[in-house]
Design a protein around this nucleic acid. Sequence first.
DNA 1: CTGAAAGCGCTTACAG
DNA 2: CTGAAAGCGCTTACAG
Lengths: 339, 339
Amino acid sequence: MKGKATSIDIAHMAGVSQSTVSRALSDSHLVNPETREKIKQIAKDLNYKVDKNASNLRKQQSKTLALLFFEDPTSDDSSINPFFISMLGSITKASAAAGYDLLVSFQNLSDDWHAMYEDGKKADGLILLGYGSFTEYEYKLTQLEEQGTRFLRWGAPDDNHPGISIGSDNYQGGLMITQHLIDRGHKTFAFIGEINAGAPELQARYLGFAKALKKAHLAPDEILQVDAISTEIDGYNAACTILDKTKPDAIVCASDLMAIGAIRAIRSRDLKVPNDIAVVGYDNIQSSGFATPPLTTVQQNTALAGKLLVSNLVKLIQNETVEDILMQPELVVRASCAD
Amino acid sequence: MKGKATSIDIAHMAGVSQSTVSRALSDSHLVNPETREKIKQIAKDLNYKVDKNASNLRKQQSKTLALLFFEDPTSDDSSINPFFISMLGSITKASAAAGYDLLVSFQNLSDDWHAMYEDGKKADGLILLGYGSFTEYEYKLTQLEEQGTRFLRWGAPDDNHPGISIGSDNYQGGLMITQHLIDRGHKTFAFIGEINAGAPELQARYLGFAKALKKAHLAPDEILQVDAISTEIDGYNAACTILDKTKPDAIVCASDLMAIGAIRAIRSRDLKVPNDIAVVGYDNIQSSGFATPPLTTVQQNTALAGKLLVSNLVKLIQNETVEDILMQPELVVRASCAD
DNA sequence: CTGAAAGCGCTTACAG
DNA sequence: CTGAAAGCGCTTACAG
């Protein structure tokens, strides 16, 4: 029988019609309980599984969700952003729990967006995950929407973008962690991280940072900020740039990776963290807990994010209305900022 | 037209039969070049994509690979083993490059193995990824094989398991890194990590470790070894157990996470790494480079592993013969062992 | 080079 | 409660 049994084989063996087999296997109440059990037993013995291609074709659905990663073009191949990895885990679990399969693809692979539309056909819905402005994708998103594709975007709600989005409040996160430093008595600050429109997440963190300073009347005319992408080496270089000019009480970094680099820069100049300079990051990546000193940072609730993304996408598929969601991040206090 | 166009719509518009549309779109040479271009243009204008369910049903294939994760039951939900994450990335890319979709699922979710067989139906082939002995899965693997499912297992080749496997030479890795320490003059050693049959990867690393000591005539009757699973806290505890008894020149850990914990234990006793005790890990996880001191470790080539896994599975699907592969790991020397 | 037709394995009105 | 039949959207012999 070599994994080839069809519903017709079962029908023959059970002495019923193929229609009845199909009904029994989908737990239709339109079938005699005894017959159903008999059919189910035979199906089990034969290790029969419904052919998804056939049933999906017939039902015009796929019971599949597609997760499209839009990778940061600056990150190298081997190290995917740890935050997204965490999201991948929670999305995988959430979709399995919701009874959907998950197709995963990295969009930086395809020069055109052929793959994206393909996925649109193969999945009932799409989850778009990636940092960045999505500006260049806007046209595609619009097309996707016109096509009737259901999709959800991870990121801050933005009226300029088509579709619904679920995201974390980066502004609030930046504000919160800076406030924490202010509460601990720090007076002079620097910020590491890009703040252009191409990196809206980092920009929002910066804006929260600046707001906290302003509220505490600590904001000078020109806040010291150095661009950096989310890598250890960029954080290191940015911190060096800062230290060449001044020695702030605290450096707020837009990501943990940058913060780890910044700490290395500070220590290489024989300064101590947090005694001489406090450093904080963002993301709560695994390494942040093992850094020396362990990093104070901001955590986004990826488990919840994954669940919300999946459950709202399923709602969208079922034609229910879905609203934008802005999740609140949490402060994780560790030793990298003094008490 | 709302993302609903079929080959028949195109046929009408192009004034040809649906068969011709199908041929043109699959680049069959059995179609007039002009007609083909015309059809392709219409398809493009309509944003038409072949219905995968229909074509797969017809062709009796899915052009999909399934990646089944068998998670370490001891790891908590949020932190998947970084090594597997890295594999996920490379497998995703490799399968996209080979023209296959990738279905990802975590097998610890399903108490029974229903999901596994399901995936067998939905994919042309399966990749099984996970540490552990697979002993409990053996029966299932046999069934999978009887069913005619093509699958590849990540792990050391093992005659007792059905199917083909591709894995990394953990014995060689353990031997190599221990040899490195011996070459640097260390005389007394301890090992942290489980060495039972349930963790064959760690066991192999241990056996390589023991072999290196033996070759150098450094093996005492009783080698100091403490069980630990691959977590920071277990590494910490195991190192404390060792330090309560003795102070070896070097501690070889079966994973980076354990090594990071061991370093913390050593430092908490006012001993220095590597000056008092050298510590090495295994895996080259991201955190290992940012640890203080940065960890000497063993790296498995995940990019290559992913490619091999995918390319060999595709061969299997195409009924070509495939052999077991044992990949050689690489030593990554950093500051955690003295020069 | 092209078209008419069969059929992949299901689900689901329709009729009883 | 059950069966015969249609049809989901393709691909691919078959006939020309």
